[in-house]
Design a protein around this nucleic acid. Structure first.
Length: 847
RNA sequence: GCCCAGGUGGUGGAAUGGCAGACACGACGGUCUCAAAAACCGUUGGGGUAACUCCCGUGUGGGUUCGACUCCCACCCUGGGCACCA
């Protein structure tokens, strides 16, 4: 192979041009090998050019690289290549998010070794990816399941533990009965099912490890100096769910006669005079102490029923309100009124305090509850225009009018100041205070599964929870395990792993057998890329601070409230620990669309996949790359069916035409014994040059905006224009304008089709790679048309098109239009009332 | 229910206030060939006409404008997100 390549390279250009047909398989593997030998895809840390960190979300090594992966990675590669030709030192690394359930399931089902299974998948995917010809910097590859990576995942866990950001606690957690493990809140979908497998998630009270992401809630709302899609930021804001309001202490008297304060959280302390009942979640600890003996049986039945319901059933908004009266009363601190205490399932123990004040006049849920249970409704706001009567209401009145029925507060407007006024009053009386609550919960990070990073913690009878000292890292994940998916990590059945000595006292101790959520691995991999080989530390600070924040991050939108939120939390925590000197990891974010088959995302776990290998063999990687980018806007994705593949023929033909046109050019230039450029008719030369500069303007703009489909159609049009010029006047091949057009074509096409452009570039006699050439710049003066087409309309309908020389003044153009016979015919007997002129484009005669 | 994105030929899509359907695919016709493939050339939104040309047409109905796929209002459909958060 190599010898053949060298032979070919030594031939004279015309010889090569004559013998050459476009054979993608040959030239693609040739150039991939040369690029690798030259190391031109490795980004040097000390390169003087400005840096550009072009990051793609690393994939899970599921086995085969399918066409959906290709779509994603090609789009990112085109962007990186484009930025390199814009003069940046582009770092474009690749890696694998290699811990996770599928490897473990393969081990359980087929008796495979999880590590061997994963690594062989990685080898296969790496091989497939290399046929794409991307500028992936393989020297920086990261594989999260290898000890030289997870050693530092464990180390980061210890750092967070030392900072008080990792803790162990018993809490009601999400349990997936299918995957036999707990899940983070973020991994439970809105319908209460598991993000991975779709099983209905259950609630269990378990002792687990958490990261204190709630401490960062406010800072996670900042989004300082980053350019993200508004939608993604909105999703994170909603997920964090910050609410400002007040904590108000009601008092209740238990059956034992003891008085007790019960706090509620409310965003509307200004409606306190409208409270007519008090609500507790079924799980609230006070329920048992407040339920009178005659209500006990009914209450127990209600609570049992609420617990048996799934989260979906319980949180469905359209069912009618249910609840049971406890028989006890609560005292409203603002006016001393006693109101009945009810238990209802629409109050959630996991938000606020698990207790709520009922204001039926001004809260829709409370309104429905009051109507269902026949409880009174007191209005504490009235609209300005007309008075509303409580028993005539059909829905709650939210935000309108002025305060009534509220003693000293009557007459105040519905405004934030009024709310503040009430809070000040509560604070003065000592019965409440301003408070902010959040929807986000701490991040549950322990998993009862095997194939994940060990948690570097031991339990000692004397010293309790003891972190493994740094010099004993990594805690190696053993390979000789037996799988019993029974809700317990298989590591628990491995005495030689479990039994250890306490690092503090040296006595017998047990290792933590849960493993870390794989989202922890992906929360810092983009830092490791900067210093992937470092055996002494997770990363060198100077390197990380040089490359980050990531200049462009590309990945699917499904990670908005998972990976993208976790990674931001990690970086903020590390910033506070002095481990990095920036607070946001990803400066710009782009969500590519997805390739769907049968309407579902193309992925091994969720739908049918299509392998690119056959297409690459048949048409070449360049054609497949261009084809995928030609399908439509990159953020829109595409539906994959039998017809989709037919479009590949079109771009393949285009590449062939470019190849033939360029080899024809070489031949024609070689025929000219005198050598050098010749002059051709001035107007042809000018029109070629004009097409060149218009194309440069258009295509460079498109490449910078991920508009690859229109960039390609621009290049196709350019190629068609060139072909016409050459057919009508073959001498154009030897003109300077033609040479300029050819080089512009190759450079603009290079990010999309790197192999064919490299080959042709060298055929033209260049010895440097095309891929670090500067993108051509367009000359505005050359891109201007000499002849303009003016659309002539009468009353907005097109009646004629006039070819006029550019540079005529407004009146001359209007005169030309009015002189047109077609326009005259359309005007007929009518009188032109107005003539609208859009410079260089259109004249509209209004009659 | 609420929020966001979208709805354009047989198909993927282009045009973001100014020629609707660029660029491709497919289909049809042709050149070349003994033949086929490939390649190349032509036609291709619908309808009327022998033709010049004319009418209709961007989910539906209204509106703004000299002019609307584009802006505004109401509605229908598809996809995504959120959903008793007090």
């Amino acid at each position: 192979m190599t010898t053949e390549v060298e032979d070919d390279a030594t031939k004279a250009p015309q010889e090569r041009a004559e013998s050459n047909r476009y054979t993608p398989a040959e030239i693609e593997s040739k150039w991939q090998q040369i690029w690798e030998e030259r190391g031109q895809n490795h980004a040097d840390d000390n390169d003087p050019r400005p840096r550009f960190y072009n990051l793609v979300m690393f994939p899970y090594p599921s086995g085969d690289l399918h066409i959906g992966h290709w779509y994603n990675f090609v789009g990112v590669d085109v962007f990186g290549r484009y930025q390199r030709m814009n003069g940046y030192n582009v770092m474009q690394p690749f890696g694998f998010d290699a811990f996770g359930l599928p490897a473990e399931n393969a081990a359980i089902k087929r008796g495979a070794n999880a590590r061997a299974w994963t690594l062989s998948n990685i080898d296969n995917m790496r091989r497939q990816l290399k046929t794409m010809g991307g500028i992936w910097d393989w020297q920086r590859e990261v594989v999260s399941c290898l000890p030289d990576y997870y050693k530092w995942t464990e180390w980061l866990f210890l750092k967070l533990y030392e900072a008080g950001l990792a803790y162990r606690a018993k809490a009601p957690v999400n349990w997936c009965p299918n995957d036999q493990t707990v899940l983070a809140n973020e991994q439970v979908l809105a319908d209460g099912t598991c993000e991975r497998c779709g099983a209905v998630v259950q609630k269990r009270d378990l002792e687990q490890w958490f990261f204190r992401i709630t401490k960062y809630a406010d800072r996670l709302l900042e989004f300082k100096d980053i350019e993200w899609p508004e939608k993604t930021m909105t999703m994170q804001r909603n997920w964090i769910g910050r609410s400002e309001g007040a904590r108000v202490n009601f008092t209740v008297t238990g059956l034992d006669g003891q008085e007790e304060a019960v706090p509620v959280f409310t965003t509307r302390p200004d409606t306190l005079y409208g409270v007519t009942f008090f609500l507790l979640a079924p799980e609230h600890p006070l329920v048992a102490r407040l339920t009178t003996p005659e209500k006990k049986a009914e209450m127990e039945a209600y609570i049992t029923k609420a617990r048996a319901e799934t989260e979906i059933e319980r949180q469905s908004t359209d069912k009618t309100k249910t609840g049971v009266f406890t028989g006890s009363y609560a005292t409203n601190p603002i006016n001393g009124e006693k109101v009945p205490v009810w238990v209802t399932d629409y109050v959630l123990m996991g938000y606020g305090t698990g207790a709520v004040m009922g204001v039926p006049a001004h809260d829709q849920r409370d309104f429905e509850f009051a109507r269902t249970m026949g409880l009174p409704i007191i209005l504490v706001y009235q609209p300005e225009e007309q008075e509303i009567k409580a028993d005539e209401m059909t829905e709650a009145l939210v935000h309108e009018g002025h305060v009534v029925n509220s003693g000293p507060f009557n007459g105040l407007p519905d405004s934030p100041d009024t709310v503040k006024h009430f809070i000040r009053y509560l604070e003065e009386k000592g019965v409440g205070k301003a408070e902010v609550t959040y929807r986000i919960r701490d991040w549950l990070i322990s998993r009862q599964r095997y194939w994940g990073s060990p948690i570097p913690i031991v339990y000692c009878d004397t010293d309790g929870i003891v972190p493994v000292p740094e010099d004993q890292l990594p805690v190696i994940l053993p390979e000789n395990v037996n799988f019993r998916p029974d809700g317990v990590s298989p590591l628990q059945y491995l005495p030689e792993f479990v039994n250890t000595t306490c690092p503090k006292c040296g006595g017998p101790a047990r290792r933590e057998t849960d493993t870390l959520d794989t989202f922890m691995c992906s929360s810092w991999y983009f830092l490791r890329y900067c210093d992937a080989q470092n055996a002494e530390a997770a990363w060198d600070n100077a390197k990380v601070n040089h490359w980050l924040p990531v200049d462009q991050y590309t990945g699917g939108p499904e990670h908005a409230t998972m990976h993208l939120l976790y990674a931001r939390f990690f970086i903020k925590a590390m910033y506070d620990m002095g481990l990095v000197d920036f607070e946001e990891p990803f400066r710009k974010l782009f969500h590519q669309g997805m390739i769907r088959s049968e309407g579902k995302k193309m992925s091994k776990s969720k739908g049918k996949t299509v392998a690119p290998d056959r297409l690459v063999q048949q048409f070449g990687a360049d054609a497949v790359r261009c084809f995928l980018m030609f399908l439509g806007p990159f953020d829109q994705g595409a539906e994959w069916n039998d017809k989709t593949e037919q479009l590949l023929v079109g771009v393949s033909r285009f590449l062939n035409r470019v190849w033939n046109m360029m080899t024809e050019t070489i031949k024609a230039q070689a025929d000219d014994s005198a050598g050098g450029a010749v002059a051709v008719a001035e107007d042809i030369e000018r029109s070629v040059r004009r097409a060149t500069h218009k194309t440069i303007r258009r295509v460079t703009d498109d490449l910078g905006h991920w508009a690859y489909n229109t960039a390609l159609s621009g290049l196709m049009e350019f190629s068609n224009t060139m072909q016409e010029a050459a057919t009508s006047n073959p001498a154009v091949y030897r003109s300077a304008a033609w040479q300029e057009a050819c080089e512009a074509m190759l450079k603009l096409l290079a990010p999309l089709a790197p192999h064919i452009t490299e080959e042709l570039w060298h055929t033209f006699g260049h010895t440097e790679t095309i891929h670090t050439q500067a993108m051509p710049a367009f000359d505005q003066a050359l891109a201007v048309d000499e002849i303009i087409t003016v659309i002539a309309q009468v009353n907005g309908k097109v009646r004629d098109k006039l070819e006029l020389p550019a540079g005529l003044d407004d009146e001359a153009i209007k005169a030309h239009v009015l002189a047109s016979p077609k326009i005259a015919a359309a005007i007929g007997d009518g009188h032109p009332k107005k003539v609208i002129y859009v410079p260089g484009k259109l004249v509209n005669v209004v009659i």
